Computed example of a mutant assay.
Amino acid sequence: MAASLLRLHFHDCFVKGCDASILLVSTGSMLSERRSNPNRDSVCGFEVIDEIKFALEKECPHTVSCADILALAARDSTSLEVPLGRRDSKGVSLSGSNNNIPASNNTFQTILTKFKL
């Protein structure tokens, strides 16, 4: 699960910053980043974040953002140091997800360019 949580956090941060926008689900007026090509059938661990959020909300409602939960889950599963204080997103960017996350068939130069953005 560590690799999945790290990947989930990585894919979230790559689009609009580390704002948990990848956790938002599609609605009638908004297509979720989960449906982008690099994320479809690639990222998982959503249920772990949901379980953590549920437990935290039970103990201290409206206190910890989903963005921080996602960052802490990635950190704690891999022992990374991460700063806190992120704000949760209320929007998504399907095009940003499709265009900014490196695809498995990208050339090295394309991937390098995407990391420099």
Rank of each mutant, 00 (worst) to 15 (best):
L5H: 01
L6P: 12
L8Y: 00
H9Q: 13
H11M: 07
H11N: 08
C13V: 03
C13A: 15
C13D: 09
C13P: 03
F14V: 07
D19F: 01
A20H: 00
S21A: 06
S21L: 06
S21E: 03
S21C: 05
I22G: 06
V25T: 07
V25A: 03
T27L: 05
T27G: 12
S29C: 09
L31Q: 03
L31E: 09
S32L: 14
S32Q: 15
E33A: 04
E33L: 06
S36C: 15
S36M: 08
N37Q: 15
N37E: 13
P38E: 14
P38Y: 08
N39V: 05
N39P: 04
N39S: 15
R40A: 13
R40C: 14
S42C: 12
V43G: 00
V43D: 00
C44E: 13
C44G: 12
G45C: 12
G45Q: 11
F46P: 00
E47R: 12
V48N: 11
I49W: 10
D50P: 05
E51P: 06
K53M: 15
F54K: 12
A55S: 11
L56R: 04
L56T: 10
K58T: 09
K58A: 06
E59A: 11
C60V: 14
C60P: 08
P61T: 01
P61S: 10
H62R: 03
T63E: 09
V64K: 12
C66N: 05
L70Y: 07
A71F: 14
A73M: 02
A73Q: 00
D76R: 08
D76E: 13
S77I: 12
T78C: 12
L80P: 06
L80V: 02
L80K: 10
L80Y: 11
L80N: 12
E81P: 02
V82A: 02
V82Y: 06
V82M: 04
V82F: 07
V82C: 02
P83R: 05
G85F: 01
G85W: 03
R87P: 08
R87G: 10
R87I: 13
S89D: 06
G91F: 14
V92S: 01
S93H: 08
L94A: 11
G96C: 05
G96M: 05
N99E: 14
I101C: 01
I101E: 01
P102N: 13
A103Q: 15
S104V: 14
N105Y: 14
N106P: 15
T107V: 02
Q109T: 04
Q109K: 08
T110W: 05
I111S: 03
L112S: 11
K114C: 01
